[in-house]
Design a protein around this nucleic acid. Structure first.
Length: 277
DNA sequence: CTAGCGTCCTGGCCGC
DNA sequence: TGCGGCCAGGACGCTA
């Protein structure tokens, strides 16, 4: 379940390894992974001959700026992995797309549950027209515009539980189930709290908790949870530091109370009934 | 317009 | 030991 820190970890790896080398060919092994263009040969054809100038991150989306002024978009969704490998590396069972750089290396998109997507956006086409989710993204938590006032304004209109709101990419970009639970714990807010009932100080604290939790995970190279791997195929280091996520029934690391688990809009939420109110 | 639910998918795990 | 069924969740489409 790659969230902002995992996507950022992948982005940094891609920027170290994949730039300024021509994409010479490619292979689409699962057609539905390519969301645009609909024909796989047009997807590969569009990329062929370009180099990647840089990778940027928008929420959980990865975007590669190409030398042709076109863009390559990638969303890892649940289980997607972008790996920088020798082409001789045996094919993983869930290999979906391969982009070849000469005869040696490749970017290999491996995605067990096939929710991941890739897009080729031709030069001159507005990215948000092709990747509609990009147009709905909120401010990035690391942007200077992510102020307490911004978050307060966003939440002031929302009459649903804060946990549900934090998973909404149009309110905060990049949070998923793990870091939403962690940030709520750190700010002492119950996941079920209706947004309009959250005070100014709590929102201030929540904003800081979001930034701190995401920063700590990026520093650790992403989470150990799920099958997350960085571009070199190495798992992250954050799991051992989780306060509540996936710890139902275990003692709270702060007060010793038993961590609880509940369901909110179909997603599991973990919290400490003592530390969060 | 907003909120909420079902859907996509595979593999791990639980219980019988 | 085998197997059915449930669960994990990011984003989006549909419905009320």
């Amino acid at each position: 379940m790659p969230e902002l820190p995992e996507v950022e970890t992948v982005r940094r790896g891609l920027n170290q390894l994949t730039l300024h080398q021509p994409i010479t060919s490619g292979e689409v092994l699962l057609a539905r992974t390519v969301a645009y263009p609909f024909a796989a040969d047009q997807f590969i054809g569009g990329l062929k001959g370009s180099t990647i100038e840089s990778w940027i991150r928008c929420g959980k989306y990865l975007l590669a700026e190409l030398s042709s002024s076109a863009w390559l978009g990638v969303h890892l969704r649940m289980t997607g992995q972008l790996l920088w490998l020798s082409q001789e590396e045996p094919l993983h069972k869930h290999t979906r797309v391969r982009l070849f750089f000469g005869k040696e290396q490749e970017i290999r998109f491996v995605d067990q549950r096939t929710f991941g997507k890739m897009w080729y956006i031709p030069s001159g086409v507005v990215r948000e027209k092709i990747i509609t989710g990009l147009g709905k993204l909120a401010i990035d938590p690391f942007a200077v515009e992510f102020t307490p006032e911004y978050l307060a304004t966003k939440l002031a209109k929302v009459r649903r539980p804060i946990k549900t709101a934090l998973l909404d990419q149009s309110i905060v970009a990049g949070l998923g189930n793990i870091y939403a639970d962690e940030a709520l714990f750190k700010s002492g807010i119950l996941p079920t709290t209706i947004c309009t009932n959250i005070g100014e100080n709590q929102i201030r604290s929540l904003r800081m908790a979001i930034i701190e939790v995401l920063s700590a995970s990026i520093a650790a190279g992403g989470t150990t949870f799920s099958n997350f791997l960085n571009v070199k195929g190495v798992n992250g280091n954050y799991g051992g530091e989780a306060w509540v996520y996936n710890r139902a029934g275990d003692p709270c690391k702060v007060c010793g109370s038993m961590i609880q688990r509940t369901k909110l809009s179909g997603r599991s939420s973990h919290f400490c009934p003592q530390c969060q109110s």
